[in-house]
Design a protein around this nucleic acid. Structure first.
Lengths: 220, 220
DNA sequence: TTGTCATCTGTCACGGACTGACATAAATTA
DNA sequence: TAATTTATGTCAGTCCGTGACAGATGACAA
């Protein structure tokens, strides 16, 4: 890696670090791009060459998490039922936040604290989750041997499980033992979701075909 | 109603109308607040006295829909199982979009077209849906005789059904027979969701207590 | 009708998030 | 070292959104 690339990577990290430090101590809204840029001794214009927006910086980590979750799912055994595979993938992801290097755990908690404190960020982070969902749907559909474009069942399954995860997160807005309660809550909502679903539903063994109206095949 | 109030109501509607006309012909992003204000012959400052932001105007109708959905749920018979009641409430809501006065239907379709064309708006409209969910959770918990603050099951149930609705909406991004395909898709995803859930799960007759960790009762 | 009062509105000034254009400085490569 | 690429800073400008102030316009009572 050349010097140029190293420098870029370095200022990028510096921007993120300084930004979150400011977010935590002043709040997200109250922190201006100019402040962040000044903290790294960079012009405001340069900030926008690294991040499309202030929000982009704040939610930058989501792409990393997306990577973690999708690979976790891909690594699950092929013969595992889709719901179980998804549940384990998420479990592994959240567990990784705990067992990772202390510095990674620290970062994760910082992110959560900043996001949870700001409704707009929270909203947009959910929207990013929707991006992750799309990828998960593709993998689930593959495992189910169906076409996600015409069959809504993979989407529904993924939507169900991410709903459970989201509810788990929502229940954990504490300060002190946040990570512990988060893991416990996600675990319990996942269990609840498992109990709520009809056994074997995720395997498409029975039931209707689940065709849906697309531009091509609209009813009537 | 006095003259003053009538005028306010009038300019408010004029702002919405002019705005959506511009949104449809130029796109949401490309339309500036100044343009909207100019179209109604009002100062830009006044625009912000009617709406907190451009987005607020674009998503103004959500409060109306929130009202429709929550009252539809409240009107369902008390002895109806929660899932059935929720499903019917949403069905009624969407059906109302079709059977309403033609002008209301037209407005609904305009809204959808503008929203669907803009990722940011779509995201935020989902966030507003989260607000609706909160109200639904309260009503569902009441019907289930449980406390939504400590028991995640009402939230999970509501999250499941709104997921189904959302998937139904996502499958319907056509132009021509949009409303028809929307109704059909929502209907079919609701049916799918019904099939996916274990019968009677929504009535809390059996299963674990579903306690969740809050600040008060966090596990270790 | 008139005068007081509340409220709505326009104007002005401003801050903060972004963007395009251009020049400069730095690293890469030959 | 020279030529080329690429990152950065400066500058000017747009748009969203807000506080402050003053003038216009209904509301209402005497």
């Amino acid at each position: 890696m050349g010097l140029r690339e190293r420098k870029k990577h370095q200022t990028r990290l510096a921007l993120i670090d300084s930004a979150f430090e400011l977010f935590l101590c002043q709040g997200y809204e109250a922190t201006t791009v100019d402040q962040i840029a000044a903290a790294v001794d960079v012009s405001p214009r340069t900030f926008f060459r690294y991040f499309g927006s202030k929000e982009d910086l704040a939610l930058d980590f989501t792409v990393e998490y997306e990577e973690l979750i999708t690979t976790a799912l891909a690594a699950r055994p092929q013969d595992e039922p889709p719901f179980t595979a998804l549940a384990h993938a998420f479990r592994e992801f959240i567990h990784a936040m705990e067992t990772n290097a202390a510095e990674d755990t620290e970062r994760f908690l910082r992110h959560r604290r900043v996001i949870d404190a700001n409704p707009t960020l929270l909203t947009t982070s959910f929207a990013r989750m929707a991006e992750i969902e799309k990828k998960l749907v593709v993998e689930v559909a593959r495992r189910q041997g169906t076409d996600p474009a015409t069959d809504p069942r993979p989407r529904l399954l993924v939507a169900f499980i991410t709903s459970a995860i989201r509810v788990g997160f929502e229940c954990s807005v504490d300060g002190a033992a946040y990570l512990g309660s988060l893991i416990w809550n996600v675990e319990s909502t996942l269990t609840l979701a498992e109990e709520a679903l009809r056994p074997g539903w995720d395997q498409l063994s029975l039931g209707s075909s689940g065709q849906v109206a697309t531009k091509a095949s609209s009813p009537r």
